[in-house]
Computed example of a mutant assay.
Amino acid sequence: MIEQAFEILGVTPRETQLYQTLLKLGPASIRDIAEHSGINRGTAYESLKQLQTKGIVSYFPKGKRRFFMAENPDILLNLAEEKRNRLNKTIDNLKNTIIPNLHQQQPDYHQANVRYYEGDDGIEWVLRDILNVVSQQDHKEYCVFSSKPIRPFLYRPFPNYTKQRVKLGINVKVIALGDGGEEAELSERKWIKTEGSVDASYIAVYPPKCAIISLASNNFPSAVVLESKDIAKAQQIIFDTLWKML
């Protein structure tokens, strides 16, 4: 736990060991520090200089030698608060300036792209992407076309997907192709009755993206994610129109 906290503050395990050694020794020479820490003098000296620049260790001359001493452990909380303040400022800059400017630098053809995913890991990525994109929108809702054959395989890699969706306050409208489908919280469902069997398919519309999931041979899942505001809007219009008719 101590090493993890120090690591977050930018202090290496070796530097952490030296700092703890100094706390126990009090002011000490590089020779004594190396002896008690088990770190050779050259390496210990370089690490102590790094700790000095971080404000965790200081030194004073005594004769011809330098004696190092550990700063009060309370300094660590000050470092953490400074790091948090810098991180908060960075987050604000990313949201308000950096990311918008980077988006403006993208040429138009980057606004529409297609990505392919395969296997359970790929399907889980798509499902998490749906939650991530929709949870950041003001109107937390997406829509789905879904057929019965794909349902046993869809949430196999992400069995608590529905719980996560509900926890995030995300609504979903589902047009089910054929029979089946379970009612769930924050979910509305309508059916299109079909004659005979239907193929395994799942289409999620979550602007600016659309995801299409299907099954290949041996029930191997694959997905295509298309990112395009225009196409997603067109698919949304189709869904909304059909929803009103059912």
Rank of each mutant, 00 (worst) to 15 (best):
V174C: 08
I170W: 02
L186M: 10
D179Q: 14
W191N: 06
I192K: 09
N160E: 15
Y206H: 14
A184I: 01
E185W: 01
S197E: 14
E188L: 03
P208N: 10
N171S: 13
I175M: 12
V166I: 14
G169K: 03
V198K: 08
I192T: 10
I203G: 03
D199G: 13
P208F: 12
D199S: 13
I170F: 00
R189M: 12
I192A: 04
L168V: 01
G178F: 01
P208R: 05
V166S: 06
G180P: 08
V205G: 02
G178E: 03
G196S: 11
G180W: 06
W191A: 01
Y206K: 05
A204D: 03
A176K: 01
A200D: 08
L168P: 01
E188N: 06
N160D: 15
I203R: 06
Q164N: 15
R189I: 13
S187K: 12
L186V: 04
E183I: 09
G169E: 06
A200H: 04
V166K: 02
V205A: 01
L186N: 10
S201H: 13
G169Y: 00
V174W: 02
G180Q: 08
R189F: 01
I192R: 06
A176N: 05
V174N: 07
A204H: 04
I175W: 05
G178V: 04
K167Y: 08
E185Y: 05
G169Q: 05
K167D: 11
G196A: 11
Q164T: 11
S201T: 15
V166L: 05
E182N: 14
V198Q: 10
E182D: 14
W191M: 00
A184R: 06
Y206I: 05
I192C: 09
S201V: 15
G181T: 09
D199V: 12
K167R: 12
K167A: 10
T194A: 13
K193N: 11
W191D: 00
A176E: 10
Y161I: 11
I175D: 06
E188V: 00
I170R: 02
E182T: 14
S197F: 07
G180C: 10
V174S: 08
L186S: 02
Y161F: 15
V174R: 03
G196I: 08
K190C: 05
E188Q: 12
G196M: 02
Y202C: 15
K163Y: 05
D199M: 10
N171K: 12
I192M: 11
R165T: 04
T162Y: 04
N160I: 14
G196E: 11
I192Y: 01
L186F: 07
A200S: 14
K193I: 09
E183Y: 04
Y206P: 05
E182L: 13
Y206F: 15
I203L: 15
P208Y: 12
Y206N: 07
E182F: 11
T162H: 12
G178W: 02
V172A: 08
Y202T: 09
V198F: 06
L177P: 02
P207Q: 14
E183M: 08
R189S: 08
E195S: 09
K167V: 03
V172C: 01
K190F: 04
E195D: 13
Y202L: 14
Y206R: 00
S197L: 11
T162E: 15
Q164F: 07
V166A: 08
I192D: 05
